[in-house]
Amino acid sequence: MITLDDMSLSIEDFNRCIEDIVNTSDNLIDGWRFEQNEELENGKYIIKKEQKVLSQDQEDDINHVLTFEYHIAFNISYGVPVLCFNVWKQDGTMLTVEEFWKLNERFKESNMYDTITQMDHPVLRRPFFTLHPCRTHEIMEPFLEESKNPVVSWLTVVGPFVHLDLNEEYVKMCS
């Protein structure tokens, strides 16, 4: 038994879910691909790179061209998937947490340091912006029985906070 709770996602479930995501992505040519570190039990994760143009707020007429790299990996301690990402500017430097925050109206009400923090990537062990996993279980719980792909269901909830939109073909996988 590898999970913390009876009602949680096992690594095997997680691997199956991300495999389905990559298959659907391949059909859509959506860019999700596999990575793996074979030495780790939670070594499988998926990556997607995407360019986006964002502006700071309504009054800001400067558009920022940014490259997002999203990773979905499995956090062993919490027994949940984590969505982590890094963002590069056009000059090749990485966005800081504060810079990301300024571009993110949706988080205005919440505490920046509690919601998105830099954390170690569960496989790469390097700093990534991470939606803190402590509430993931709560978000996922209703999906564990109902959804055929709880990882996708969870992504539809948290993705919009970090500009990650999912094609509806993915959502169809859940039912």
Binding site: N86, T93, M94, T96, V97, E98, Y113, T117, Q118, R126, P127
Partner: peptide, 14 residues
């Protein structure tokens, strides 16, 4: 920046 955390403030370390 890809290896080391940017701890611009003590709050970030906290």
């Amino acid at each position: 920046e890809s290896e080391v955390y940017r701890f611009d403030s003590k709050e970030m370390v906290e």
